[in-house]
Amino acid sequence: MSTQTQILNDVTAFIWHESDLLDHKGYQDWLQLWNEDGLYIVPAEFNADGNYEDTLNLALDDADMRSMRVARLENGESVSANSTGNTIRMVSRVRVLEAGDDLVIARCAMTLNEMRHGKLVTYPADVEYRLQPTGDGYRLAGKVVRLMHADSFLRTVSFIF
């Protein structure tokens, strides 16, 4: 197997693992995937430029906000989180954009499906991962979820893309 194919396999395995955790609400394990300084970002415009901190986003979570977001989804106090069932996301079209020793950048297509009050809601997205290689697999150093809906109107969201 070529080195490039091996990296693509490793990256895809990581993304599928992460996707499975989120679909099955394994939020505590998901938090453990992250580097402390990593940012989870959902831009408010599909074509937002990379200057997320000076832009309004749907979410821009540092480690503290990620923990609080997970706490909100898990602690039973949020009526919308309580009424959200599992999500099912399909991830494909994985492409490694950069494969450095310290950072691997990959992009993929994702479609997330949610059953909301008896109606199927679908969110197609372009997702970018920044992954830090370690001796023990990848660490999540950044994730940007570009939703097609971002340019239009979303439904409210009580899960993690």
């Binding site: 909100r72 949020s78 979303l154 409210t156 969201v157």
Partner: peptide, 9 residues
């Protein structure tokens, strides 16, 4: 917003 800690509820 749709992903805030208030609006979804």
């Amino acid at each position: 917003g749709p992903m805030g800690f208030g609006t979804p509820d």
